[in-house]
Design a protein around this nucleic acid. Sequence first.
DNA 1: CGATTGACGTTAA
DNA 2: TTTAACGCCAATC
Length: 115
Amino acid sequence: MNFYDKVYRITKLVPRGKVATYGQIAAALGSPRAARMVGMALSHCSDTEVPWQRVINRYGMISIENMIITKDEQVKRLAADEVEITLQDGNYFVDLAAYLIDSEQLLVLNTYPVT
DNA sequence: CGATTGACGTTAA
DNA sequence: TTTAACGCCAATC
C-alpha cells in the first residue's frame, strides 16, 4: 500500500463533527514527521469519500492556499459537519479544544492496520 | 535525471 | 523565548 492510500484510509476514520491535525494523521500511519506529505496527499485527493476538510494544521488554522481547492470550500464543508469556524485576521480557525478528536478516537487511528 | 517544492511539525541553535 | 534548520517522500520543474 502506498503512502497516499494510507493517508486516505486514516482520514476516513475521523468522525463527522471532529477534526484531526496533519501531525496526528502522519503519526497514525507510521511517520510522525511526515505531516507535509499528508497535506500533499490530500491536495491530490480524488476520492470524494475522503473527508479531507477534517484535517487541519496544529493551530487549528485552515492553511490551504492553492487554487484547485479553496479555503472557502473547506469552511463550507466543515460547516456541513457542524464544526464551528471563527475568522481572525483574515484566516479561518477551528476551536481545537472543542473539536479536536479525543484520545480514544485517536487511539483508533493509531491502532488501525496500515502495514 | 537531479533539484526543488510543499494543506506541517519537531528539534536545534 | 524567538528564529532557523531539517525530516518526511511524491510530484513537479
